[in-house]
Amino acid sequence: MSESEYRVTGMVCGHCAAFVTEEIERIPGVTGVTVDVEGGRVTVASDGDLDVATVRAAVEEAGYDLASD
């Protein structure tokens, strides 16, 4: 099992978190998503390593941006 944390910009409420969660959960292998709206962080648990481009595409599909650290 793997866990990765990403910084997401543009989230301001629970609805934002729901949209991001829904899109990331569609990625094959994802087993859990935790969103911290105030901190702008998303933690993703998965069966293995995830491709950051796949996570970025899911976040963008939800209407937000994956920040590059």
Rank of each mutant, 00 (worst) to 15 (best):
M1V: 03
M1F: 03
M1L: 08
M1E: 03
M1D: 04
M1T: 03
S2L: 12
S2V: 08
E3A: 15
E3N: 14
S4Q: 15
S4L: 03
E5D: 09
E5G: 07
E5R: 10
E5I: 06
Y6V: 07
Y6E: 06
Y6H: 05
V8N: 01
V8M: 01
V8C: 02
V8H: 03
V8I: 12
T9Y: 08
G10Y: 07
G10T: 12
M11V: 09
M11R: 05
M11I: 07
V12L: 14
V12R: 13
V12E: 15
V12M: 15
C13R: 12
C13E: 10
C13G: 09
G14T: 13
G14A: 15
G14E: 09
G14H: 08
G14F: 08
C16F: 11
C16A: 12
C16S: 11
C16L: 13
A17N: 08
A17H: 13
A18I: 04
F19C: 10
F19V: 08
V20F: 09
T21G: 11
T21I: 03
E22R: 06
E23G: 03
E23P: 06
E23H: 13
E23W: 02
I24W: 04
E25F: 00
E25D: 06
E25M: 10
E25W: 02
R26N: 12
R26Q: 14
I27N: 01
P28G: 00
P28L: 00
V30D: 01
V30H: 00
T31K: 06
T31Y: 05
T31G: 00
T31P: 03
V33E: 00
V35I: 07
V35L: 03
V35N: 12
D36P: 10
V37G: 14
V37Y: 07
V37A: 10
V37N: 09
E38P: 14
G39H: 05
G39V: 07
G40P: 05
G40M: 11
R41F: 05
R41S: 02
R41Y: 03
V42D: 09
V42L: 06
V42G: 08
V42S: 10
T43E: 10
T43G: 01
T43D: 02
T43Q: 14
V44M: 07
V44L: 07
A45G: 12
A45H: 06
S46Q: 10
S46Y: 09
S46M: 14
D47Y: 01
D47M: 02
D47A: 02
G48Y: 00
G48C: 01
D49I: 01
D49S: 14
L50E: 00
L50Q: 01
L50S: 00
L50M: 00
D51K: 06
D51H: 02
V52P: 10
V52D: 13
V52W: 04
V52F: 07
A53W: 02
A53F: 04
A53L: 04
A53S: 08
A53T: 08
T54F: 01
T54D: 04
R56C: 07
A57L: 02
A58D: 06
A58L: 03
A58M: 10
A58Q: 06
V59R: 05
V59C: 05
V59F: 09
E61I: 04
A62H: 04
G63W: 09
G63R: 08
G63T: 09
G63E: 12
G63P: 10
G63Y: 15
Y64N: 06
Y64M: 11
D65I: 11
D65R: 15
D65T: 15
L66E: 08
A67T: 06
S68K: 09
S68P: 12
S68D: 12
D69F: 15
